[in-house]
Design a protein around this nucleic acid. Structure first.
Lengths: 234, 234
DNA sequence: CGAGACGTTGATCCGATTCAACACCCGTGG
DNA sequence: CCACGGGTGTTGAATCGGATCAACGTCTCG
């Protein structure tokens, strides 16, 4: 057993049953016997910021659960503009659509260095067919995706740029220590549907008026009360 | 049998197994024995434009499949503004979230006179537990919801108002006869995140330049080629 | 017929885009 | 070691598009 675990670690093959974040993961509810249905390797992969997981239209061989880091899902417009439609963080799943369709529906790009579990589609399909304990998790994942999409529409695509930036900063803030790692102005703009200049101006303004305090390298201390006021007005 | 069907028709209780739109509906894949698991009545209900199905936060007792008509799902913002986040049409399901959460997450309002099947949550939960044939349909529904949400973000919330209105009109057009029933300018605005005046101006402009031809009562003939050009620019 | 809802249009104002310039950081190579 | 160049963030000035406020036309229904 010990040997096998070590061998797996070396080869990058995961031991899902003992996964450290299993309570957050797709396989949270599986029982011992369910894991015996997995007959293809689940790989742990590490990706650097800027790496691409897959592109829109690619054949969907894998689902990815995010162990750490941040992934952005992007779609392109006829005129070439791009829009980030969702962010995935610890516990989220990228590529759920391959259980329904043969191809991916977004570009998935690493936004902050990430560790992922790469799960062959077959494995999820088989588990989904043979054990009911995966279903609820799948429904949950879809639900959170829809919920995030709806929130982005109402909170990040409605109102003035200023309040939208404020809402985004609040959403990216750690509510315990009020700190906040932002992304590049370009990515923030692609989330909000505004230009990078506008984003830059607003964040610079937040810094000047003290709503954000620079902690270095896109790391800020956020005055959530003040930001909430800005988020609500206009 | 015949008698029972008639009795059901009178009482509004549905006979799902023989439903005319079953191929589109949630129960499309169910088999004869599955239907015996249904021990609570599924009601057919008719609603008029303006009627409300449920509100955000209401306890979710029912799911609704749309047989005909159009339902809008709305969310409200802190500042009181509202945004329509999705439209449901024949075959779509309202209230899926009650399989995951106790309460509804939107206001569901009838936009065009609708016929609906009102399905008790228990029924869907039980079927979902006891027959695998409902799972795929449920995953499919979630998938279409996410897909529509993503499209709204990229197509209806990005770019100039003019191209967004054009994209919306195209999306609402019947591709067979190029005709198109629009909603009130206010609702169109709430879909696009612009004011009713802007919407009105743009549609009036489309009429003047011939991209839309009035067929009476918010019914138009759409020049899809011209509209597609407008949708792509800017 | 009159009231109210809805659509249209005009004039003005404000906010976001655009285009441009510049500051800054960091890694590379002379 | 510093000079250089590219990427990123910031800022300014001019422009444009959509919001706003207000008025009016049209339709429907009581």
């Amino acid at each position: 057993m010990e040997k096998r675990a070590i061998a797996n670690a070396w080869s990058g093959v995961s031991n899902c049953e003992n996964c450290g974040i299993r309570h957050l993961a797709l396989f949270a509810d599986l029982e011992h016997t369910d894991f015996e249905l997995i007959h293809k390797p689940i790989m742990e992969v590490e990706k650097k910021a800027g790496d691409r997981l897959y592109g829109e239209g690619d054949e969907g061989q894998f689902l990815y659960t995010v162990r750490s880091g941040v992934i952005k899902l992007t779609q392109y417009l006829p005129d070439g503009g791009q829009r980030i439609v969702r962010l995935l963080r610890t516990g989220d799943v990228a590529g759920l659509e391959v259980l329904v369709n043969p191809t991916y529906e977004h570009y998935a790009t690493v936004l902050r260095d990430a560790e992922l579990c790469q799960i062959p589609r077959d494995v999820v399909e088989r588990l989904n067919r043979e054990t009911p304990r995966l279903h609820n998790q799948l429904l949950n994942r879809w639900h959170t995706a829809v919920k995030q999409a709806d929130e982005w529409l109402t909170e990040l695509s409605t109102g003035s740029s200023k309040s939208r930036v404020a809402r985004l900063v609040i959403g990216l803030s750690d509510k315990v220590d009020n700190s906040c790692y932002l992304f590049s102005r370009e990515d923030l703009g692609a989330i909000l549907g505004v230009t990078t200049e506008t984003t830059s101006r607003i964040i610079a303004e937040f810094k000047r008026e003290g709503s954000l305090k620079d902690l270095g390298k896109n790391h800020f201390l956020a005055d959530l009360v003040r930001l909430q006021n800005i988020a609500n007005e206009n």
